[in-house]
């Protein structure tokens, strides 16, 4: 009762509330809802069989496959780097710590196209390591390894960014307790640290994975657009669209949109679990009873 009265006392007039609501929802509808629906409508414009036919096309299938391969290849490196960096930043004091934190944010600040060009500059035929690589007959640029490198560059901040505040808030008491009880470094990590950060880690993995599958700019620069070989889904969508193959382009785009929806659902579930667990583990102290 009293809370109702309180709300009314602090509430804006009805017309303000409804205007704000309309603006917000309208924005969401025009910029997110409508495009999402449009993708599926366009993809299915000539019926389900044509849609499925477009997806079965070998170049589209190889683009889907390559997207998954790159995302999976990038994942272990991202986890390794993210956990190691977050660990170092959250649990130790060292010189150059703030520089490291700034560097981790670099991929957010730099345009993906520039990121792609960096790798051309390093590993391309005119690049620093170009001749040496050519002599060894290793292809990085205009091949899958280059695309993996570019994706790695773009996605590595996600996990570290997610874990740093989490690990900082948890402190290092539990780790010290584990060591003083005789645990080795590995035992401490597997039994104490990892269980404490698992939901945060999973959240970071989902975010970086979504980015890895959707990356266009950096990958576009290093891929060389060789059909059926170095085309990921986002690149393939562009090629098909430029060829006025609307059904094919929107069909491929619909797969990306579906992946995005799956990511969203997974992200929401993890967020929910993370919150439930944090609430449970950091619950208020009950009254003293001895």
């Amino acid at each position: 009762m009293s809370s109702n009265k309180l709300t009314r006392a602090t509430q804006e007039p009805a017309w303000v509330r409804y205007t704000l609501l309309t603006v917000g929802l309208g924005f969401l509808f025009f910029f997110l809802g409508l495009p999402l629906v449009a993708v599926f409508v366009e993809a299915l414009a000539q019926g389900l069989p044509i849609y499925l036919e477009a997806l079965k096309e070998s170049e589209t299938r190889s683009a889907i496959w390559l997207t998954i391969v790159i995302a999976l290849a990038v994942l272990p490196f991202n986890i390794l780097f993210g956990v190691a960096a977050a660990w170092a930043i959250a649990k130790f004091e060292f010189k150059g710590k703030s520089l490291l934190i700034t560097l981790i944010d670099l991929p957010f600040a730099v345009s993906p196209v520039v990121a792609g060009l960096i790798f051309i500059l390093m590993f391309g035929s005119q690049g620093y390591f170009g001749e040496w690589l050519a002599a060894k007959d290793v292809k990085i640029i205009f091949a899958v390894p280059g695309m993996i490198l570019a994706t790695l560059f773009i996605t590595f901040p996600f996990i570290a960014r997610e874990l740093i505040p989490l690990m900082q808030s948890q402190g290092k008491d539990e780790e010290e307790a584990a060591i003083s009880l005789g645990a080795s470094g590995w035992q401490m990590f597997w039994r104490v640290t990892l269980p404490n950060i698992k939901w945060g880690l999973l959240y970071g993995v989902i975010l970086s994975n979504a980015r890895a599958m959707g990356e266009f700019g950096a990958v576009s620069v290093v891929s060389g657009h060789i059909r059926g070989e170095t085309n990921t889904l986002p690149l393939h969508v562009e090629i098909l669209y430029n060829e006025y193959n609307a059904i094919g382009a929107f069909a491929a785009a619909s797969v990306l949109a579906l992946l995005a929806l799956v990511t969203l659902v997974a992200k929401t579930i993890v967020e929910w679990r993370m919150k439930a667990e944090t609430d449970m583990l950091n619950a208020e102290l009950p009254g003293e009873k001895t």
Partner: peptide, 17 residues
């Protein structure tokens, strides 16, 4: 620290949550 055979009790308990 793990070889010293000391038991350590922390101010904020540091129980494995």
């Amino acid at each position: 620290a793990r070889e010293r055979n000391v038991g350590f009790v922390f101010q904020h308990y540091a129980l494995f949550r």
